[in-house]
């Protein structure tokens, strides 16, 4: 199955795994090439990514901007730490809302798995409060409209 598995681990981590029916090379490239990233890294319905700039080498920076007709927009900035072609990407990122959220340290690995690829993602936040804050922040951007609807009623 190609289903995403995502859970917290300890106080500071969020880990995820997902199988893809494509080679590690393709999955790796789709995480780094802006014209590919802009097709899939969009989050909930209604969001698009008009700006996707990156410099994929150790120390290189990136900036991804999202926009939504109703919810406005926000962006992420980050730096690449380590790149092992087709196997591993390490980067640090934070959201700007516009104040920056705590740094999220992300390790993504791509491993051959049968005819496809097993991708594993490990996010590490500074502490439990930062992790809770990052998760809560997701609510701000239309990821969960139920809160907004209840708020309007209240």
């Amino acid at each position: 199955m190609n289903k995403l598995v995502l859970n917290t681990e300890g106080d500071r981590h969020i880990v995820a795994t997902r199988h893809f029916r494509a080679s590690p090379e393709s999955v790796y490239r789709a995480h780094l090439e802006p014209d590919l990233i802009q097709k899939w890294m969009l989050g909930p319905d209604g969001w698009s990514m008009p700006v996707c700039v990156n410099d994929p080498r150790p120390g290189g920076r990136f900036r991804y901007e999202w926009t939504h007709a109703k919810h406005g927009g926000f962006h992420i900035t980050g730096e690449f730490v380590e790149l092992v072609p087709f196997r591993r990407i390490v980067h640090v990122e934070r959201m700007h809302l516009p104040d920056p959220t705590p740094d999220n340290h992300v390790v993504t690995t791509f491993e051959k798995d049968g005819a496809g690829t097993l991708m594993a993602l490990c996010m590490t936040l500074q502490d439990a409060a930062s992790r809770a804050a990052m998760l809560a922040t997701g609510m701000e951007h239309g990821m969960d409209d139920s809160y907004a609807r209840l708020d309007a009623l209240g």
Binding site: L6, F20, R21, A22, A30, K39, G43, P44, M143
Partner: peptide, 18 residues
């Protein structure tokens, strides 16, 4: 909420990979 957002991303990535 994060799980749903990422699941949507990776479903789209399946199409890109295809």
């Amino acid at each position: 909420v994060l799980r749903q957002a990422l699941a949507g991303n990776y479903d789209r990535l399946d199409d890109v990979l295809a």
